[in-house]
Design a protein around this nucleic acid. Structure first.
Lengths: 249, 249
DNA sequence: CGCGGGGTTGATCACGATCAACGCAAGTGG
DNA sequence: CCACTTGCGTTGATCGTGATCAACCCCGCG
């Protein structure tokens, strides 16, 4: 439950317990059964929830919903990574949020009853649990605890967003970039030698958008980070050496 | 109900209807009775809400709660302006949010059941409605609609925060600064000649923190804006000429 | 009178944006 | 199999911007 580093670009939710969790309600089948927003669902609503529930397998780069689309579903990511982006009329796009396993998305539009203001797209092969808005509303209206959980997630997300904004200027681009990559590697288990090797789920343009930089700057800073020995990167392939226990606090 | 400009630094909630609204429930006394989060309070809970309810008059620069303080209250601003700021260990502080009349604050910590991560301070003489967390929780647990309203506010705030982050880099510092000042003047009625005259509620340092700039840059850009005729400013006193109907769509 | 905080000004400089060109790999179609 | 295209990433050159450090000013205040 330890709070992640002050300036963490991306924070994790609770860690998945085990996949062997018995599927007691629709969402119980995923690893986040206990932590699911739908968890304390009233028995009489369980069937209703099951009705609006379905699971979806996503290929890398597959779209989940488009910007401006009506928000008639709430999503929970059980595997993989999902990016939330917005494109504006002038063509500029920004990286709104990275969704990690166990997190829900699409709920902001669901709560506000507005069309999605972001586009959701799988960054890797992924699996999402989908709950139709109609059933979701019934469940939410029937069980205040679920609504409370939703509100809590929203509050958490709000804090994260604020932290992001506050820290978006802190330090130089290199430091922020390194932090972003470290955060992206958080799910990856280190190799035997302590080095974390993984495929970067974000393009240079994505990283640039996430950090408020130009793609060229990302390239250059990455190279400087390489030269400084902070990491090795070739294309999307990253090697992140053990952080040498520098995380004091 | 028209949505504010895309890049509005600060968005307004609903406009106050009238002060003559009969005080049907504790919050009915303020101008936002109809729009209050506590509004659809169940009759049996009204007394409970009244118990935890009180009103507070604030002088300019008076603190409402400190960063790190336990979040045992939820606030609704009925008059004046309030600033939410965070200070970090290294001394740097950031301007998290400006609270306008009709908006609630302190609810994020209330929802997350965490101590306040921001400090709240009145920027002008202000009046807040305070609801004790204990009673607030009872009301929220007893009436899902109130919780729903709270969640909605949270969702709105989340969107605002995201927009802020996405736009925080857009355009040059001068443009963002002018937009900030225009937003700050939104409550002010224009003079007979169409010029809006008001006292700036933010210090240079606050504006800098809100925009991610250095105070010196704020000073310089303000002067350039003056020279360009976009506004007149002397100390905290601002004159904002009519925006020449440039607000297209 | 000295003090202190907020605000201003000046000089300097590193940083990152921008534009343009190029490399490279993965598709695509013949 | 090879030309062609397309998108992503890289490199280079240039330039404006805003951060930083330092000094100073102004004003209120004890």
């Amino acid at each position: 439950m330890a709070r992640r580093g002050e300036g963490a670009i991306i924070a994790t939710m609770t860690s998945p317990s085990d996949d062997s969790d018995p599927p007691r309600h629709p969402c119980g089948a995923c690893a986040f059964g206990e932590a699911s927003v739908w968890r304390p669902v009233a028995p009489e609503l369980r069937a209703r929830l099951a009705q609006g529930f379905r699971r979806r397998q996503l290929a890398r780069d597959e779209a989940i919903y488009a910007q401006g689309a009506p928000a008639n579903t709430v999503y929970c990511l059980s595997r993989g990574l999902v990016a939330l982006r917005t494109t504006r009329e002038d063509g500029h796009y920004s990286f709104v949020r990275l969704v990690r396993p166990g997190e829900i998305f699409g709920f902001r539009s669901f709560l506000a009853r507005q069309p999605h203001d972001t586009e959701a797209r799988a960054l890797t092969a992924a699996r999402v649990c989908v709950v139709a808005a109609r059933e979701a509303r019934e469940v939410v209206e029937g069980s205040p605890q679920v609504l409370g959980g939703l509100a809590l997630r929203c509050a958490i997300e709000l804090r994260r967003s604020r932290d992001l904004r506050a820290h978006s200027r802190r330090g130089d681009a290199g430091g922020r970039l390194l932090r972003l990559i470290r955060d992206l590697s958080a799910d990856q288990a280190p190799d035997a030698d302590g080095v974390v090797r993984f495929r970067l789920p974000l393009s240079r343009a994505d990283m640039a958008a996430a950090l408020g930089l130009a793609p060229e700057t990302v390239t250059r800073r990455l190279r400087r980070l390489c030269e400084a020995g902070a990491l090795r990167i070739s294309g999307r392939q990253v090697e992140l050496p053990a952080p040498a226990a520098e995380g004091g606090g």
